[in-house]
Amino acid sequence: MSVYRRSIWVFHLNTGSCNACDIEILDVLTPYHDVERFGIKLVASPRHADALLLTGPITKESLPKVIDALLAVPEPKLVIAIGSCTCGGGIWYDTYSTLGGLNELYRVLKEEYGIPEPPTVKVPGCPPRPEAIIYGVALALGIVKQKYSTTKVRVE
């Protein structure tokens, strides 16, 4: 993602998360992990942001707000999904009041709004430790390569 050569500013959006991911995001900003050394800064409005940090499984009631916030982020935008809830729905992947993760959100965006999927990095973990979040951002910026990929083994 060569468009992000410089500092990225992020907007944090809780879409129904339990707070664990949110406090780890705050932790990343505090002295021990201090991501401001990379120029990463938390901003108060999606209009100022380059990237959207999403936490939580996207509850139905937060859906319209998530869409609004996502649309408010100027192009080129980046989505960083923090935590297993956002990546794959987590424990609530099939409950009545959640969407069950980011893939479902992208499906809604595509079908109902005709918006293509923005470049996305997913950081699984429950919650991901601060280092894992930094790693995810580094992956988004193209500093590191994805470490794992799908493997399929057939045995007798």
Binding site: V123, P124, G125, P128, Q146, Y148, S149, T151
Partner: peptide
């Protein structure tokens, strides 16, 4: 813990 991914990771 360095599990961040762009393409889905499944171990089958």
């Amino acid at each position: 813990f360095e599990l961040a991914y762009k393409d889905e990771v499944r171990f089958i």
